[in-house]
Computed example of a mutant assay.
Amino acid sequence: MTRWVGPWLLLTCVFLLMVGNVDPWNVLVGAGVAAALLRWSGRWLMDGRPPGKLGPRRVWGFGVLALAVLADVVRGTWRMMHVILGPSPGAKQGVVEVPLGERTEGGARVSALVASMAPGSVLLDIDWERRVMRFHMVDASRADEFRADMERFYRERQRAVFP
């Protein structure tokens, strides 16, 4: 249990640096976010289980993946601008389920993280029994496009790095 304290404190401090304010509420929220992040990714970070063999192809794949995530964040920001400035902001929001497909447990977590980085969608939970990820989307009218984009992104960019 003590091996979790250092990373938990570090992540809490990173959160406080990010918000730029050390009032008690931010400390509490940061500690909660840090605990949730460690719980979510603990097997990779804390138990020493590597995500896979690291080679030149995987390093290249990670660079391509990072650029694709950046492009997705820009597209998501553009879409959010249209939603916010549109005639009825938030009118089409809803929950969208995305099948896990052939993703491993770690791959599903990376997919969820990547999809949540772009504005407009955030992971609610992963139902491991039904093998679906549940997202809240600001514009759920494009649910089929979102599912297809996630599957294409996984197949073309993510699978080579985080299966």
Rank of each mutant, 00 (worst) to 15 (best):
R130A: 12
L54G: 02
G61A: 01
R131Y: 05
V73E: 03
E97W: 05
M1Y: 13
V83L: 08
R157T: 00
L85T: 15
L123G: 03
R147Q: 13
A108V: 09
E145L: 07
L11G: 07
P99M: 01
L17F: 11
A35C: 08
V96E: 02
G48F: 06
L65S: 10
G120T: 00
A112I: 10
T2C: 11
L10A: 15
R157D: 03
C13F: 14
V161N: 03
L11A: 09
R159T: 01
A143H: 08
P24Q: 01
G120R: 00
D23K: 08
E102I: 11
W25P: 04
G42D: 02
E145R: 12
P50T: 09
V27F: 07
D23P: 05
G30A: 05
W44R: 15
R152H: 13
P24V: 10
R131S: 06
V96G: 00
G42M: 10
E151N: 13
L65I: 02
L54S: 13
F153G: 01
E145M: 07
V122N: 04
L45S: 11
L67A: 14
A36T: 12
G94W: 06
R39I: 12
P50A: 13
T104C: 01
A68Q: 12
M81T: 15
W4F: 15
L123Y: 02
V83Q: 10
G86W: 00
D127C: 02
A140L: 07
P119L: 01
G63C: 09
A31K: 05
P119C: 04
G106F: 15
V64L: 09
T104F: 03
G30Y: 05
V5C: 12
V73P: 01
R134L: 02
A34I: 01
R43G: 08
G63S: 10
E129A: 10
A160I: 03
L54K: 00
L10S: 05
F62P: 02
R147M: 04
G120A: 02
I84R: 04
R109K: 15
F162S: 02
G20Q: 07
M80V: 10
E97D: 08
L11K: 05
D149W: 11
V138K: 02
V29L: 12
V64D: 03
L9S: 11
P99A: 07
G52T: 00
L16Q: 04
I84P: 00
E145T: 13
A68G: 14
A143C: 09
G101N: 06
M117R: 00
G94I: 07
A34P: 01
M150N: 15
N21Y: 15
C13Y: 08
G55K: 06
V83P: 01
P51D: 08
R157A: 08
V73H: 09
M150F: 03
H136M: 06
A112C: 14
P56K: 07
S121T: 14
V122D: 00
R49F: 11
L9F: 14
V138Y: 00
M46H: 04
M1D: 13
P24A: 14
T12K: 11
R131T: 01
W128Q: 13
L37D: 07
R147I: 13
V29T: 05
M150Q: 15
E145V: 11
I84F: 00
S121C: 06
V59S: 08
W40S: 15
P51W: 06
E102F: 07
T2L: 15
V29F: 08
V14S: 09
A143T: 06
V98R: 03
